[in-house]
Design a protein around this nucleic acid. Sequence first.
DNA 1: CTCCAGGTGCTTG
DNA 2: CAAGCACATGGA
Length: 265
Amino acid sequence: MRVKNFNLTHTLESGQFFRYYKKDSWYYVTTGEHFFRVKQEGDVLRKECAPVNVIKKFLGLNHDYESVVSTFEDPILKGTEQQLKGLRILEQNPWECLCAFICSSASNIPKITKNMNFLAQNFGTKKVLDNEVSYTFPLCGEMNDAEKIRAAGVGYRADFLHAVNKVVTEDELKQWSSLTYDDLLEKLKSLHGVGEKIADCVALFAFQKFEAFPVDVWIQRIMESQYTGPMKPWQVKGFAQSYFGRYAGYAQQFLYHGGRKGVIR
DNA sequence: CTCCAGGTGCTTG
DNA sequence: CAAGCACATGGA
């Protein structure tokens, strides 16, 4: 299919998603019930083993990229966007996204990836694509074995995952998609192991709340050095939401990835 | 061996 | 509220 204002590499490798790997110029992606591969050649996106509507939804191809970018007025942000043109916010499965970011606390991307793959292996369903093998992630409620959770190497986060798996249901998660940003944030933050930052990540990457602005140590550092000077994280978030506007979440992802790639400054 | 990692919960001032 | 610390685990 043809795509415009889209960059697969920036989108997948910007730290919002963990269950992919690259092989022979294809990206192999496992999300929801799907295990598929995609590759981009210029304006053409090739995909195999998943319906086109699934791919488009997941990759954020339904977003109006030009509208998003048209709200960017800040020079640093505009410059970063130009260097990372086509980076999209994904639309992830809420349960998987929630688990991934519960695993993310005091961790790092390679380790989160391993945790998620182990959880899928221990609880999920095997999928085969040619010679490639992957496991779909379990549904909410299906991770009922504390021992198997711990075996995924998630450390102290095992208790969080176990508790959250127990109190939330897939139905409830579906209902959350109709909540306002504030109400959704409340629901997410009520979960054990989910604070402001993780709630914002899930609100943004799964529930498409583009006004969310997750503040981690990276964004904190970038915001302080480029915009605000020393500030508390909750102040940085407040500043960013009012300064960047209704697509603050998109701004966050550009700045986060740009900062990590050394594109800024 | 020490230090750190897309934080959060719990305890005290 | 704000500050201080523990929390498992793996890699540098």
